[in-house]
Computed example of a mutant assay.
Amino acid sequence: MPPRKPAQRRHLTERQILHIATLIKEWTTPTPPTWEKIVTLVAQELHHQWSRQTLQSHPQIKQAYENKVATCRSQLKTGKQPPQRLPEHIVLEQKLEQLKNENEELQARLHEYDELLLCYLGNAIRYGVTQEQLEQPLIPPSRQQTDPLLKNSQRKQKKGKSP
């Protein structure tokens, strides 16, 4: 029998970390989750098995685990069941979270553009570019040199004029 290759080590991506944290938050059994159960759940969901230590080393996963254990234990003490969330609410919350993340990314990009604009303006002032020069409209590029259709039409015009 040939020697078995060791399993390849794979690092968790941010997306996988968030997915695992969501799995823990959506834990449905009344008993508190254990790390062994979470490791098997993650292996079933993501088709790769990470160790408890790897999962626990990520703050989002660890926080979700601790919160879920605390809520499960308090539910066992009081006997109250958590209110069931409607699937529509879950979808809307996910959409809201996605839009918030997109908004943050776009605001960061806008901030970068603002900094770039300030850099351009500072350099324009430093090198003596006047406001009138900055406000001049852009000159349209000459497409005759690069556009093959325009080149051909000019050649045809020149041939027509020369005879």
Rank of each mutant, 00 (worst) to 15 (best):
P2I: 02
P3T: 06
P3E: 10
K5R: 08
P6W: 06
Q8E: 13
R10G: 02
H11P: 07
L12G: 11
L12N: 10
L12C: 11
E14L: 14
E14W: 11
R15W: 04
Q16I: 13
Q16R: 08
Q16W: 07
I20V: 06
A21K: 01
T22V: 12
L23F: 04
K25M: 09
E26F: 13
E26W: 07
W27F: 14
W27N: 01
P32G: 03
P33W: 02
P33S: 12
P33E: 07
T34S: 07
E36K: 06
K37I: 02
I38C: 02
V39F: 01
V42E: 00
V42W: 00
Q44T: 13
Q44G: 11
E45H: 15
Q49V: 05
Q49I: 14
W50E: 00
W50I: 01
R52W: 05
R52I: 13
Q53P: 01
L55W: 02
S57R: 05
H58P: 03
P59N: 05
I61Q: 01
K62C: 13
Q63F: 07
Q63H: 04
Y65W: 14
K68E: 12
V69S: 08
R73I: 11
S74R: 11
Q75P: 01
K77R: 07
K77T: 09
T78F: 03
G79V: 04
G79D: 08
Q81H: 07
Q81K: 10
P83Y: 12
Q84C: 13
P87H: 08
P87L: 08
H89W: 10
I90C: 06
I90K: 06
I90Q: 13
V91K: 06
V91T: 15
V91H: 09
V91A: 15
E93L: 14
Q94A: 06
K95L: 12
L96R: 12
L96M: 14
L99T: 12
K100N: 15
N101G: 12
N103L: 13
N103C: 10
E105K: 14
L106M: 04
A108Y: 11
R109M: 12
L110W: 07
L110V: 15
E112M: 10
Y113W: 08
Y113N: 13
Y113Q: 11
D114Q: 10
D114G: 15
D114W: 07
L118H: 07
L121H: 04
N123W: 09
N123H: 13
G128S: 03
V129A: 07
Q131P: 00
L134H: 03
E135K: 06
Q136I: 01
P137E: 03
L138S: 01
I139D: 05
S142E: 10
R143Y: 06
Q144N: 14
Q145G: 10
D147H: 05
D147I: 01
P148C: 02
R155W: 02
K156L: 10
K161H: 04
K161A: 12
K161Y: 05
K161F: 06
K161C: 03
